[in-house]
Amino acid sequence: MRFAGYAAVFDTPDRGGDVVRRGAFGPVAPVPLLWQHRGAPVGRIDTIGEDARGLRVTGRIDDARLAGLVRGGAVDGLSFGYRVRACREGARRELTAIELVEVSLVAQPMQRLARVHAVVEDFPDGAAP
């Protein structure tokens, strides 16, 4: 099953008070797709990068149980693991340079707007009807 969504949305405080700023991710190298930031990959990220809204990802979920939860809407959160390279401290910590480590499907994202927004079933020949 394939999906698309945002692992981060710019200028939106997360539950911890951090705010990711545009350009913080810079060029993004390939990263694994995990479940709840742990364990072995549950699929793969096909495309990832910043757009005007945030860090947009498309990928494939290979784990059948997790794919069923995402398909049914029981899991729709996205999140990302990172190392802070630069930030501004103030009323909120503004993340201005981030080293991305992984993207995860999660039950409860730190950033409320970081969600899967589209799901597409795979077809054996790679084409949709």
Rank of each mutant, 00 (worst) to 15 (best):
T58A: 10
C87Q: 15
P32Y: 01
G5I: 06
Q111C: 07
R15C: 11
H37D: 03
L55C: 11
L95R: 12
F80G: 02
G81E: 05
L105R: 10
S79H: 09
R92P: 14
L78M: 05
V28K: 05
P124L: 03
G39L: 04
D18T: 09
R22A: 13
V31F: 04
C87E: 15
A118Q: 12
F123V: 03
Y82T: 10
I61N: 10
I61R: 07
R65I: 07
P41A: 11
R38M: 09
L95A: 14
R83D: 14
A114R: 07
I48M: 06
D63H: 08
R60P: 00
R71K: 07
V84L: 07
P129I: 02
C87F: 12
V42N: 07
Q108D: 11
D46W: 03
V28A: 10
G26P: 10
P124K: 00
D11E: 14
E50S: 08
G26I: 06
Q108W: 12
F10A: 12
S79N: 06
D46N: 06
V20R: 04
V119T: 13
L34D: 07
Q108V: 15
A67V: 06
I61L: 04
V42I: 15
G54I: 01
R112T: 13
L78Y: 03
Q111H: 09
V31H: 02
A74Y: 05
A128M: 02
G54M: 00
L34S: 09
A107T: 15
I45R: 04
A127H: 12
A128C: 01
G68F: 03
D11S: 14
V20T: 15
A107R: 12
W35L: 08
F80N: 02
G26K: 02
F25D: 06
V42T: 10
V119K: 04
A64C: 02
A29H: 04
R53I: 10
V70L: 01
G77L: 01
G23V: 10
D125V: 04
F10W: 15
R22S: 11
E99G: 13
Q108E: 10
D18G: 05
L66K: 05
P129A: 03
A67Q: 05
R2S: 14
L100P: 00
D51M: 01
R85P: 00
I61G: 09
R85K: 14
A64M: 02
G54D: 00
R44I: 01
R93Q: 11
V28R: 05
E99S: 13
V101P: 00
G5F: 08
V84H: 10
V116Q: 00
E89V: 14
P41E: 02
R56I: 00
G23Y: 07
G126A: 01
G39F: 06
P30G: 06
L113W: 04
G5S: 12
G16L: 09
E102Q: 12
R60N: 09
E102P: 03
I45S: 08
Q111G: 13
G43W: 03
L105G: 09
W35Y: 14
A40Q: 10
L66H: 08
H37S: 05
R56A: 11
A74V: 09
V57W: 03
A107Y: 04
A114N: 07
E89Q: 15
S79D: 06
L55R: 11
M1E: 13
Q36F: 01
G26Q: 02
F25E: 04
R71V: 02
V70C: 02
G17Q: 08
P124N: 02
E99M: 04
R21P: 00
G23D: 06
D63A: 08
L78T: 09
V9K: 09
D46F: 01
V101R: 15
